[in-house]
């Protein structure tokens, strides 16, 4: 079952970042459908619904109240139903521990939030058009962190 658009989901507690994210996709004009949740709890609630449509790519902020991005990641990875979701970590920090933890727990890519809107657009378009099969097979700690 192959849809003609890419379904992208973001979970981020920061209002500004949610705004940048949706504006970037608006301007990109790609074949995408974007859903945004304001925290990890809301995200997991939606995903765990039995009739939920699963995203192709899930962007996870790490530092969120109640349920952090890392907790969401662990939960998703234990559920066989979510095995095809590509998970992109989307965080302000790029600390070694965060990168290490999310890599070990099975995230597919680590994105450090850029400080320029055009860069953000470039990153998002790259990630959406990325060949996930190819990327995941050759995944290692060096190419895990997305560099532009």
């Amino acid at each position: 079952m192959k849809e003609d658009y890419t379904y992208v989901v973001l979970a981020d507690d920061d209002e500004d970042d949610r705004l940048f994210f949706s504006e970037a996709f608006d301007e990109l004009k790609m074949q995408t459908k974007v859903d945004i949740y304001k925290d990890g709890v809301a995200l997991m609630l939606a995903l765990n619904k039995s009739d939920s449509i699963l995203p192709n790519i899930l962007f996870l902020d790490l530092n969120m109240p109640m349920k952090s991005g890392l907790e969401c990641l662990k939960e998703i990875k234990t559920n066989q139903r979510f095995k095809d979701i590509a998970i992109a970590i989307y965080s302000t920090s790029a600390s070694e521990e965060d990168i290490e933890d999310t890599f070990v727990n099975g995230a597919n890519i680590y994105i450090k939030k850029p400080n320029n809107f055009n860069t953000l657009k470039k990153i998002l378009s790259d990630v959406v058009t990325m060949n996930w099969q190819y990327h995941t097979n050759g995944l290692n700690k060096d190419n895990f962190l997305l560099r532009l």
Binding site: D16, F20, T92, K113, P114, N115, N116, N118
Partner: peptide
């Protein structure tokens, strides 16, 4: 970094 990043993004 977070507020700074946002300042920079808003400037852009």
């Amino acid at each position: 970094q977070e507020p700074l990043r946002k300042i920079q993004t808003f400037i852009s």
